[in-house]
Design a protein around this nucleic acid. Structure first.
Lengths: 190, 190
DNA sequence: ACTTTGATGTGAGGTATGTCACATTATTTT
DNA sequence: AAAATAATGTGACATACCTCACATCAAAGT
């Protein structure tokens, strides 16, 4: 199962069996049931999570009690409260499971240790973060330049797997619209 | 002037005079006048730009010919079309100068060379990108959870310097509202 | 200094999306 | 299988924001 991580790393840098064993020894395993929290607002964020299987969401609750989805997580993706993780402070977001999920957990200390010890790994994480940057920027652009329907269509096209796992009201929250508006896209065929 | 770059690097990793000289030798200098382009849609993106002085904007033009500001750039910030830069493809955005600007230019090849040769520099760029990630994510959250007025107030609070250099219509574009809506915030005092 | 160009303000009316309420249909849980 | 819970659809109405039009004011180029 943890081979998924190795595959992801090896898309960017080549590593030996021994090196992978060593890297993996810095992770811990966690299995989490549906509806359970991985990170809760106010808690210290110790880990970044690599998703072996399952599905999660990270979201922030605003002043009016409304949730806004920051990110979904599925197999092969990483998820945490990055703001809190990188600065080792308390979470401002919640992360919970949409379905039963298996994670590899990497503490900040272990991440920095690996990066310091193995230049290759620092390279891997840099490249990974670069990609994340581009994705985030595209989402901003989508929010700035497209209406709700266009954003919906684009997301459906880009991540069809997501729509099998995630209820539409969460998709709506991710896109920044109400579930009602999103629902009406099915009838209105413009 | 290029000491600004050194200061930024040394906030994250310590380097010697010789090391800095070496790093700097991988940059080229560029001076650009107001209204001139640094990157144009369709061109190959060779450089990432470190801003020594001045002010720039990067923006994307949508299907209806409307511009959307992706990022501003001021002293001490980096700017480029990251999607095109990281994948060494052609630009989908434009970057031009809001006022006369002085840049340090780093080609992708030189960036990768420095990162490969100096672990410290790879570390620096990783940390830098991490921060950028957090900023981008906060902007997404702001677009999802705040109305135009709230976004405006937050930006004004966070980057007051920006409002001295940049016309309000560009601020509007960055926030994802029309200049008219933004203008009305001055009269309406809610 | 004058002229052009760009930035800002403001009114009137339009539209996409939000809100609330309730019905219907799936999905879990017992 | 029944009961409870969550997800979805849809109507009526509200509203934040957009569009277009024109006036004013500031800045830049000659």
């Amino acid at each position: 199962m943890s081979q998924i991580l190795r595959q992801q790393i090896e898309k960017i840098v080549q590593i030996t069996d021994t090196e992978f064993e060593y890297i993996l020894s810095h992770f811990t395993n966690k299995k989490i049931k549906k509806h359970q929290f991985v990170i809760q607002e106010g808690q210290l964020v110790e880990n970044d999570f690599f998703i072996l299987s399952g599905c999660l969401k990270s979201y922030s609750t605003d002043a009016n009690g409304k949730d806004h989805i920051i990110q979904f997580g599925m197999q092969d993706w990483w998820i945490t409260d990055y703001q809190a993780y990188y600065s080792q402070t308390i979470a401002t977001v919640n992360i919970d499971c949409i379905e039963e999920t298996e994670l590899l957990c990497l503490t900040f200390q272990n991440r920095e240790k690996l990066c310091a010890e193995m230049h290759k790994i620092e390279h891997f994480f840099r490249k990974k973060t670069n990609k994340r940057n581009v994705a985030l920027q595209n989402r901003i652009l989508s929010l700035l330049s497209s209406n709700a329907k266009e954003r919906y269509d684009k997301l459906l096209e880009q991540y069809p797997q997501l729509f099998q796992k995630v209820p539409k009201q969460l998709i709506a929250s991710y896109l920044g619209v109400t579930r009602e508006t999103l629902s009406r896209f099915n009838s209105t065929k413009k």
